[in-house]
Design a protein around this nucleic acid. Sequence first.
DNA 1: TCGGAATTGATACCCGGTCTCATTGGTGAT
DNA 2: ATCACCAATGAGACCGGGTATCAATTCCGA
Lengths: 157, 157
Amino acid sequence: MRPGINSDQTERIIQALKRAGYQATPNRRLVAELVAATGGHFTAAELLERGRRERVNIGRATVFRALELLASLRVVERLDLPSGSHAYVVCDPDEHHHHLVCSTCGRSEDIADGELARLVDEIGRRNGYRIEAHRLELFGICPACSAADTAERETLA
Amino acid sequence: MRPGINSDQTERIIQALKRAGYQATPNRRLVAELVAATGGHFTAAELLERGRRERVNIGRATVFRALELLASLRVVERLDLPSGSHAYVVCDPDEHHHHLVCSTCGRSEDIADGELARLVDEIGRRNGYRIEAHRLELFGICPACSAADTAERETLA
DNA sequence: TCGGAATTGATACCCGGTCTCATTGGTGAT
DNA sequence: ATCACCAATGAGACCGGGTATCAATTCCGA
């Protein structure tokens, strides 16, 4: 992990906590760091495991609570993978967006809503629904994994 | 429930099962009927409960298995509600589509992919991802619930 | 009618997440 | 510095949705 980049992000998360009136306790700092240290998605169980490597006594509930808190601040978002399981991703709390997730390495990109808003409006109008929320999730192979994949294929051939 | 409409749909589900080489057992017929009898989404637990009202000894696993089977045939799809819980909806197995779900009554409409495909392509290209799957979910208030809501509001006023 | 495969029910289990509750720690007013 | 109080924590029980196991049944084709 590149310290410069991630400690920035850690700090941003901590600030978000404080701004919302929550304490920046050591546990929450730890979770913030771990979250910031992943470029992609992670499960609660993974995070817990990583957390326990640094602070043995951190409770399962504490990790879930921290994640829930971060989710409520929109610093983190929970996504539903095609497999049916859940994962969390760090993301930009400031604007409505969607996620593009690499199914190989788990890396995730924020996608601006863009034209989708128009499309969603139109669908609502056409069906007479008052739309309250929408969610778009994209899954695929990221450039790096794509490259790695073809490289491997070539070595085998 | 209107027999004409739903027995058609029940039959379609049964046919799909047979076509795929599965037996149309009494249990599966029951599940098919129950599924067809709902206009909107339902949880596995609800379905089980309704099932037990008609056939006391139907097992929980059997219901889950039937649902899983129908899902694999794309007759039914599992969706992730904003609340985080899961629900199932009946839907058209023949073409890729998305769902518009009423958050009040649970009714659900199939939405054709339409322009979305183009948008998805473009996002993939822009990010260098090879997109494998995408999912759009819309939540809102259906016309009927909207109407009921304003009606109630007026009586109160 | 028979034999093997498919289906079933009961039940134990698993996993992600939440609840409870007693303890600990932090914070702000004094 | 002290104290009172609320926020946060850990342990562990609990819960809900779903799956695995396994023996008993049912179905279907020969």
